[in-house]
Structure formats: C-alpha cells, structure tokens
C-alpha cells in the first residue's frame, strides 16, 4: 500500500490512507526524504488520520522520519493522531519527541506557514 505524496507550494503532504505495514512505513520514509531534496521542500506534513493503531515501530519510524527531514533542512508536522491512538501512545509510554504535531491538515499547514513566515504567499 503506497502512500500518495502531494506537492503544495514548497510543502509535501503525505496522506496515509490505510493501515500500513512496517515495509510501507519504511518505504514512505525513504521516498519522503528523497523528495524533500528534489522538490526543495520547506515543510512536510504527514497525515495519520487513517491510522487506527500506532505501535512502537510506527512511532519510532515517524520520529526518525521527522528527524531525518529536519536534517535535510525542512520541517515536519504530524497531523491527525486520533484520540484513541493518542491515549494508547501515552499508556504505552511512547512519544514522538522532537516531531511537531497538529490537530489536522489545516492546522498543520498554518503551523508551517507561521514557522516559515510565509503568510499568505504559500503557492497552491
């Protein structure tokens, strides 16, 4: 199951559509990190609204992904963590330390705009 990656201005948006296997997550990581360079991306949004489970592997992969993208010079925001998933992450003692989060795609884009001080100049 591949994750579609959309380009919007200088941002990349990866919308996870369905439960992902470990291999899918690893592939997403490689693809995003490569595309950040190709598209001169300033910000990346990973939308996990469709994920009904985030276990320690998924958590670590997203955390590593965010860190790798930071090293490539762009910012990452993880959006759409469901209430039950947030609750389970806390109970398991997992954190996305370092990765920024926002409620949904809209808030994620606003956060990137704010951080990159681009205001309304974001291209569509």
């Amino acid at each position: 199951m591949r994750v579609p990656i959309l380009k919007q201005g200088s941002y990349l948006i990866a919308s996870i559509q369905d439960a992902l296997s470990d291999e899918d997550l690893a592939q997403l990581q490689q693809e995003l990190v490569a595309r950040v360079g190709q598209a001169r991306t300033r910000g990346v949004i990973i939308d996990v609204t469709a994920l009904d489970v985030m276990d320690s592997f998924a958590c670590r992969t997203l955390r590593d992904l965010a860190h790798t993208i930071t090293l490539r010079g762009a910012e990452t925001v993880i959006v759409g963590i469901q209430p039950d998933v947030a609750f389970a992450l806390v109970r398991l003692g997992l954190s996305l330390s370092g990765a920024q989060t926002a409620l949904d795609l809209e808030d994620g884009l606003a956060l990137l705009d704010q951080h990159l001080q681009r205001g309304n100049t974001r291209g569509r």
């Binding site: 009904d52 489970v53 985030m54 276990d55 469901q82 209430p83 039950d84 998933v85 609750f87 389970a88 109970r91 398991l92």
Partner: peptide, 9 residues
C-alpha cells in the same frame, strides 16, 4: 473504542 485500540496495539 479506546479499549479496542489498546487491544489492537
């Protein structure tokens, strides 16, 4: 649904 998620996790 919170428990279902814990069980699935």
């Amino acid at each position: 649904s919170a428990d279902q998620t814990l069980i699935a996790t």
